[in-house]
């Protein structure tokens, strides 16, 4: 079991969350080239080690979190809200 320390809800079991994959992926503009869309939709770094990833607290506050986690050891080293304005307001 992973424990994810949600900024709103506190430490919670990962089963309350839905994993949403690599957080470094940014979707390009709608009129961007097919190559850019292809890369954003299909290609992943898939590192063996530190990974920046999205977790959706679907059975909690429903926030999207950006979690820094090691894919080999599962150690979590950082958690923040994905929505930047809310993260700022919470400071």
């Amino acid at each position: 079991m992973l424990r994810i320390d949600c900024p709103f809800c506190g430490p919670r079991d990962h089963t309350e969350f839905s994993y949403e994959g690599d957080a470094t992926v940014e979707y390009p503009a709608l009129d961007a080239s097919e190559d850019e869309w292809f890369e954003a939709v299909f290609l992943r770094d898939n590192p063996r080690g530190p990974h920046s990833e999205l977790w959706h607290h679907i059975q909690g506050c429903r926030s999207f979190l950006v979690v820094q986690r090691d894919t080999l050891t599962h150690q979590i080293t950082g958690i923040r809200l994905a929505h930047q304005p809310t993260a700022e307001a919470l400071k």
Partner: peptide, 13 residues
């Protein structure tokens, strides 16, 4: 287990 992992061990849920 539904999250990226190279750890060859599973979780209890």
């Amino acid at each position: 287990d539904k999250y990226n992992s190279y750890a060859q061990k599973g979780n209890l849920p």
